[in-house]
Amino acid sequence: MSVDLDLKLIDGKSSSVFLDSEIQYQKLWWEYFDHTNIKERKKIKLHLQHVPKRYWKYLMEKKIF
């Protein structure tokens, strides 16, 4: 099986590559992360140890819809 995707399309905010249900799940996950995150207890140093900054562009919770 092979999939030919244009990566520029995936990086867009409203991509036609994903189904509507996938976009809804992405938004749902972002909302969950946003509501469970306690801004006063944010530990950037620890966060960088677990997930380096170069990978943040692939994380759903870092994207804004």
Rank of each mutant, 00 (worst) to 15 (best):
Q26G: 03
W30H: 03
K13S: 01
K27I: 02
V17K: 03
M1F: 04
M60I: 12
Y25F: 03
L28H: 10
V51L: 10
L48D: 15
E61Q: 05
D4F: 07
N37S: 08
K8P: 01
L46Q: 08
L28E: 11
R54Y: 14
L46A: 09
I10K: 05
W56M: 06
D11W: 09
K39I: 14
I38D: 11
R41K: 15
V51S: 02
F33K: 06
K39D: 15
I64D: 09
E40Q: 10
S2I: 00
E40L: 13
F65D: 13
Y32C: 10
M60R: 10
Y55K: 09
K63M: 02
F18E: 10
K42T: 14
Y58E: 06
Q24N: 07
E40T: 07
D4I: 09
N37Y: 04
F33P: 00
R41V: 08
T36G: 00
K45C: 02
K63W: 02
S14T: 05
I44N: 12
D11K: 06
L48G: 06
W30R: 13
E40K: 08
W56E: 11
H47Y: 01
K27H: 11
I38G: 12
L28V: 00
D11E: 12
L28T: 04
Y25I: 05
S21M: 11
K39N: 08
I44M: 14
N37P: 00
Q49A: 08
Y58M: 11
V3H: 09
I10F: 06
T36R: 02
K57E: 00
F65S: 10
Q49G: 13
G12F: 04
D34H: 06
E61V: 14
E22H: 10
K53I: 11
L9N: 14
L46D: 08
M60K: 13
S2Q: 08
D34R: 09
W56L: 04
I23M: 14
L5C: 04
D11Y: 03
Q24V: 05
W56I: 07
R54Q: 13
N37M: 00
L7G: 01
I23Y: 01
Q49L: 11
I64L: 10
H50A: 09
I10S: 07
K39L: 12
P52G: 07
W29C: 03
F65A: 14
I38T: 12
I23H: 04
S16E: 11
K57N: 03
L19R: 13
Y55H: 05
K53H: 08
K53A: 14
H47S: 13
E61W: 00
L59S: 09
I44A: 14
K57M: 02
V3N: 09
Q49M: 14
R54K: 15
F18H: 06
